[in-house]
Lab assay of single mutants.
Amino acid sequence: LQLFIKTLTGKTFTVEMEPSDTIENLKAKIQDKEGIPPDQQRLIFAGKQLEDGRTLSDYNIQKESTLHLVL
């Protein structure tokens, strides 16, 4: 599923993930694309901070959802 990642600077980029992927996987993918170390990434969806060990489906993140990346 394609997700939109929006940064505080207003930049938006996309990543391609599976619902079974963990937040950790997502942070690694963001590191590949943007060079931001996972330990500096905080991801927010629907007002909640996402925890590394959980999956996208745990948070009911669907295709074309927008996640906010806070550094």
Rank of each mutant, 00 (worst) to 15 (best):
L8F: 14
G53N: 13
I44A: 05
D58E: 08
E24W: 14
T9C: 05
V15S: 01
P38A: 15
E51W: 04
E34Y: 12
G47E: 06
L50A: 02
R42Y: 14
P37S: 11
L56V: 06
E51L: 10
Q49N: 11
F13V: 06
D52F: 04
G35R: 06
I30L: 04
F45W: 11
G10N: 07
T14D: 06
F4S: 08
E51R: 06
G10S: 04
E18I: 12
G53D: 08
L71D: 08
T14P: 08
Q62E: 14
Q40N: 10
E16G: 07
S65R: 04
T9D: 14
Q2T: 15
K6M: 12
P37G: 06
L69F: 03
K33I: 12
K11L: 11
I30F: 01
R42I: 12
N60E: 08
K6Q: 13
I36E: 02
I23E: 00
T55E: 05
F4W: 10
K6S: 10
Q41M: 14
M17R: 01
L26M: 05
T55Y: 08
E64D: 13
E64S: 09
I23Y: 02
L56F: 08
P19C: 04
T22I: 06
L8D: 14
Q62Y: 09
F13E: 01
V70K: 06
I30Q: 00
D32C: 05
K63G: 12
P38V: 15
L56G: 02
K11Q: 08
E16T: 15
V15R: 00
I36Q: 03
H68I: 10
L3K: 00
V70F: 13
D39K: 09
P38F: 14
Q41P: 01
L26N: 00
H68L: 13
T55W: 04
L71N: 14
F4N: 14
G10P: 02
L1Y: 11
T12D: 07
D39T: 14
I23Q: 01
S20Q: 09
D52V: 07
D39R: 15
I23S: 01
L69I: 06
G35E: 04
G35L: 05
E16H: 13
T55M: 15
K27C: 01
D39M: 12
R42A: 06
H68G: 05
V70M: 10
A46W: 10
I23A: 02
I44D: 04
T66H: 15
I30K: 00
N60M: 09
D21T: 06
T9M: 08
Q62P: 12
G47L: 03
E34D: 04
D21V: 03
Q41E: 01
G53M: 08
L50I: 05
D21C: 03
I23W: 01
E34S: 09
V15N: 00
I23T: 05
Q2D: 08
F4L: 11
Y59Q: 03
Q62N: 14
I44N: 05
L56A: 04
L1E: 04
E51I: 10
L71W: 09
D39P: 06
G10D: 06
L26H: 00
K63P: 14
G35Q: 06
G47K: 04
E18V: 12
T14A: 11
I5Q: 00
Q49E: 14
P37M: 06
F45L: 06
K27A: 01
Q40Y: 07
Q31S: 15
D39F: 15
V70W: 11
A28S: 11
I5E: 00
N60R: 07
G53S: 13
L43V: 05
P37F: 06
L69N: 01
S57C: 03
H68P: 02
F45V: 04
K29F: 08
F4P: 02
S20N: 14
E51Y: 05
G53L: 08
D39S: 15
S20G: 12
S57G: 11
L67N: 02
S20F: 15
F4M: 11
E64M: 11
T12I: 13
K27W: 02
P19L: 13
E24Q: 12
E24K: 13
S57W: 11
G47P: 01
G47F: 04
G35Y: 03
L1V: 12
E18K: 10
R42V: 14
L8T: 14
T12E: 08
S57E: 09
L71H: 12
E16P: 06
T12S: 09
M17L: 13
G53F: 09
